[in-house]
């Protein structure tokens, strides 16, 4: 039986963690307000219109978080070029043979569960990285369609940069429909994402859940001979 000798690895830097939680918050707010925009509450016989503005407020919150979401996303792309190796853009696009090999491995180990060989990656494994790449594309789609719709209701110059999507998709109706449908992508993603984080922590005990709070993961030394290269501190008490 192996004795688990774990080494701490600082995986998620502060900007990555900040991005992650701001992104999570914006997505929740955008999904909730977006859903309300699509299916407003049924209020029977309220007062006169001049006394209320709740729907306007819901839309306002959607637009404010749309900007936060977009610029946070841009920031994350920037960090993919200057951040540490776990944040690097190369993790997200499977363009190397090694990544494809790992994708097969992850499917065998974690999805089909045919195999118990540990996956060696410390940051995102190849499947996770590729999935996040897909969500980035979905972010982009949601931002382009969202700001494209917003261009018609805003006088600001920024949304106008996205107005081209409307003629491309054949009109506001189609843009809106797809903008609405893509909300479900984020909801499904969140369900699976949260489950998988729990799954990894449960099965591997590497501190997956807390890593997005503290930045640290706990990695078995024998699987990672390169660990000494990392800024690790295996001997520190876990507190």
């Amino acid at each position: 039986m192996q004795k688990a000798t774990l080494g701490r690895v600082y995986v998620w830097e502060i900007p990555v963690r900040f991005y992650h939680w701001l992104n999570a918050l914006s997505l929740v707010v955008l999904c909730v307000t977006g859903y309300l925009i699509g299916a407003p509450l049924a209020i029977q016989q309220a007062s006169e219109a001049s006394f209320a503005y709740w729907f306007g407020k819901v839309r306002f919150i959607h637009f404010v978080f749309a900007y936060i979401f977009f610029f946070n996303f841009l920031f994350r792309i920037y960090w993919g070029f200057v951040g540490n190796r776990y944040a690097n853009w190369k993790n997200f696009i499977p363009y190397r043979k090694k990544q494809w090999k790992e994708i097969k491995q992850v499917i065998a180990v974690d999805v089909l569960q045919r195999d118990n060989t540990p996956i060696e990656t410390i940051g995102h494994n190849a499947v996770a990285g590729f999935t996040y790449f897909m969500t980035f594309l979905a972010f982009l789609f949601q931002c382009v369609t969202g700001f494209g719709l917003y261009a018609a209701m805003s006088t600001a110059w920024f949304p106008k940069l996205f107005a081209w999507i409307v003629p491309l998709m054949g009109g506001d109706f189609a843009v809106r429909q797809w903008h609405h449908a893509f909300m479900w992508f984020f909801i499904l993603f969140a369900l699976v994402h949260v489950y998988i984080v729990f799954y990894h922590d449960y099965v591997e005990g590497r501190g997956e859940i807390s890593s997005m709070g503290s930045g640290w993961k706990f990695i078995e030394k024998e699987y990672h001979p390169t660990l000494k290269d990392e800024k690790s501190s295996a001997q520190k008490p876990a507190g």
Partner: peptide, 17 residues
């Protein structure tokens, strides 16, 4: 339009709204 911003919607064609 002001009814839209106020969140005042017709819920069925024969309702009070």
């Amino acid at each position: 339009r002001p009814n839209y911003d106020a969140g005042l919607f017709v819920n069925s064609f024969d309702d009070e709204n």
